[in-house]
């Protein structure tokens, strides 16, 4: 079971990232739980300086930009296979 967190106060960029992550997980047919983290204290616990941030199983894979679908797919497969 994967836990995917999107860090960000909820601006357009966070929503875009959320959509990309969901699409990637759906393409891979992964069973993932999506959590939206908008509390700043919680965001800072991941040492993220700029939002949006993407956290897969408590590991920050990307921050401060919107990754492509291909990138997210790569991260998800890397984590589920290893």
């Amino acid at each position: 079971m994967l836990t995917i967190k999107v860090l960000g106060p909820g601006c357009a960029n966070c929503k875009k990232l959320d959509a990309i992550a969901r699409e990637a997980a759906a393409n891979l047919q992964l069973d993932a739980e999506f959590i939206k983290v908008s509390d700043f204290a919680e965001i800072m616990a991941y040492s993220v300086l700029s939002t949006p941030g993407l956290v897969i199983n408590d590991k920050v894979v990307c921050a401060g930009r919107i990754p492509t679908l291909a990138e997210v797919t790569k991260w998800l497969t890397a984590i589920t296979n290893g």
Binding site: F40, L49, T51
Partner: peptide, 17 residues
């Protein structure tokens, strides 16, 4: 530095700490 105004808070905290 790339900066979006919605990142002002995490950036501020990250810098100061």
């Amino acid at each position: 530095t790339p900066f979006c105004s919605c990142s002002a808070v995490p950036l501020f905290i990250g810098f100061v700490t």
